[in-house]
């Protein structure tokens, strides 16, 4: 459920190494400090599967879902801030 006023942001960080995917999340968050963000992040660094949930915990964001991409090219994270 995406709140109607939430800004949808798509971040494709496939090909970039950690901590770049998490830095991208941090930048997105900094650009909209009041929250109301709905982020879809794609990443293929194996460390992202640990770092993205840890980021969500540390920044009190909600990790809505974490799935492996069907073509095996990485992970898809759905995050609400």
């Amino acid at each position: 459920m995406v709140p109607p006023d939430a800004a949808l942001i798509e971040l494709d960080e496939r090909g970039s190494l950690c901590p770049a995917p998490v830095i991208a999340l941090g930048r997105a968050m900094a650009a909209r400090p009041d929250g109301g963000l709905h982020i879809e992040l794609l990443a293929d660094d194996p460390a992202a599967q640990y770092d993205v949930p840890a980021w969500c915990r540390m920044k009190s964001a909600t990790l809505v879902s974490q799935t492996e991409l069907p073509d095996g090219s990485g992970f898809r994270f759905e995050i609400r801030v």
Binding site: L17, C18, P19, V22, D45, P46, A47, Y50, D51, P53, A54, W55, R57, M58
Partner: peptide, 24 residues
């Protein structure tokens, strides 16, 4: 124990097992 600082290029399995940030 960060991946980029290790010689195997993978994050520390210990950091992963406790759900910690594996970078920095």
């Amino acid at each position: 124990g960060s991946a980029c600082a290790s010689n195997v290029g993978l994050p520390s399995h210990v950091l992963a097992a406790v759900g910690a940030l594996t970078h920095g």
